[in-house]
Design a binder for these strands. Structure first.
Lengths: 186, 186
DNA sequence: CCATCCTGCGACACCACTGTCGCATTTAGC
DNA sequence: GCTAAATGCGACAGTGGTGTCGCAGGATGG
C-alpha cells in the first residue's frame, strides 16, 4: 500500500483489470457484489481486496479514474471555436468512454456525499458553458439552463448505452451531438 | 389474501400507500430495503409483508400498477391526428406519472426476466409508431429507429426526473416534447 | 538458485436484509 | 358495546455480502 505513486508492471495491470471489471459490471447494476466484479476481472476476491480494502475504496478509485479519463480525453481535443463546440467535444469524449460514463452518470445522486465528486464544480462549469452557448446564439432563450444540462447528460448517457448494443460508437456520438444541438437551437 | 378482486376501504388505502412509497423510494435507489419503504409508507414492516409476501411480489405489483396507470392515462387522451401526436401524448402522460416512470425506465433491463414485462410488446409498438412517424415525415430518414426509441425514453425519463426538482411538471413536459420533435425532425 | 512478490483457496466472524411468528393493541363496522 | 379486521412490536432463523486471516503454490527478477 504505497502512499500514492503510480504502480507498475503486474500490479498496475491487475489494478486496471479490476477497475475495468467494476466499470463494466456496475454500469449495468451498481448493487452487484464484489464477487461478481472479481469474477469478471478474473481474479480472486482476496486479490481484489488486496488492491481495494473495501467497497467504498473501489468506488472512489473508479470514480477518480473515470474523471481522470474524462479530463485526458478532452485535453487531447483541439481548441474549440465556440462554447457549443466545447460541449460537442465533451460529448464525443464521453461517448468514447462507454461504461465509465454510464457508471458516472447513470444515477445522478450516486456520489452525493463523496469528497471526490464535486457536483458543484462540474455543474457550475457546465452551466457556464451553457450560458456562453446561449449568448453565442446556439441555445434558444426559452430553454431553461437546467433543462439544457439535464438533456445534455441524458443524451450523453443514452449514446454511451446505445453504443454498447445497437449502434457503432461513432454513429451514436454523431446522433447525440445532432440531437442536442437541434433540441436547444433557437 | 383474496385471489384477485380489488380491495376496498382501509385495505385498498394501505396497499396504495405502500405502492406509492415503493415507487418514490425505488425511483431513487432500487436497492433500498423494504424497511425503508415501510417507513416511507408509515406502516410497519410486518404490515408491508401482509400485503406483499416478499420483495418480488412488491416489485411485480408496482410494475403492474405502473403499467396500468400508463394505459389509463393515454386512454383518456383525445384521438391523435398523427403518429407523432400519439408519441407526444404518451410523453405527456408519462411525465405526469413522475416516480412511476422513473421506476419503470431508469434501468432498461431491470425487469428482464419478468413475465409482466413484455419488453417486446412495448418495444414493437414503439418501433411501429416511430416508423409511422417516419412515413408521415416527422422523423428524418437518417435517424435510426433504435436511436429514436432510446432518445424518446431518455427524454421522458429526464423530464420526469427534472420535474421532481427544478421545473414545474407542465414545463418539463413541454420541453421534452419540443426536444424530441426537433431532435428527430427532417 | 533463491528471495520476493503476487496470487488463489478456504475459513472465519460480522452484519444487514429478509421472511415468518405469536401476541398485544388499536381501529372500524354492525 | 361487541366482534372482527387491521396494525404494531419484538423475536427468530436463514441468507448473502463483506472484510480479514493464514497458508501454500506459482511467477518474477536478480
Amino acid at each position: 500500500m504505497t502512499t500514492e505513486q503510480t504502480e507498475r508492471g503486474a500490479r498496475a495491470r491487475t489494478r486496471q483489470a479490476v477497475l475495468d471489471a467494476a466499470a463494466s459490471v456496475w454500469a449495468r447494476d451498481f448493487s452487484a457484489s464484489l464477487s461478481a466484479i472479481a469474477e469478471r476481472a478474473e481474479v480472486s476476491r482476496s486479490t481484489l481486496h488486496r488492491y481495494f480494502t473495501d467497497r467504498q475504496a473501489l468506488v472512489d478509485a473508479l470514480l477518480l479514474d473515470s474523471l481522470a479519463r474524462l479530463e485526458t480525453l478532452d485535453d487531447g481535443a483541439s481548441a474549440p471555436a465556440s462554447a457549443m463546440d466545447t460541449l460537442e467535444q465533451y460529448l464525443r469524449a464521453g461517448v468514447a468512454m462507454g461504461d465509465r460514463v454510464i457508471f458516472l452518470f447513470s444515477d445522478p445522486n450516486r456520489f452525493d456525499g463523496n469528497p471526490h465528486w464535486s457536483a458543484e464544480d462540474g455543474d457550475d462549469e457546465m452551466r457556464a458553458l451553457m450560458d456562453s452557448a446561449r449568448t453565442e446564439g446556439s441555445i434558444a432563450p426559452g430553454i431553461p439552463t437546467s433543462w439544457a444540462v439535464s438533456l445534455y447528460y441524458a443524451v450523453l448517457y443514452t449514446a454511451a448505452e446505445v453504443s454498447n448494443q445497437d449502434l457503432p460508437r461513432h454513429l451514436a456520438a454523431d446522433l447525440a451531438v445532432q440531437s442536442f444541438r437541434r433540441s436547444v437551437a433557437p
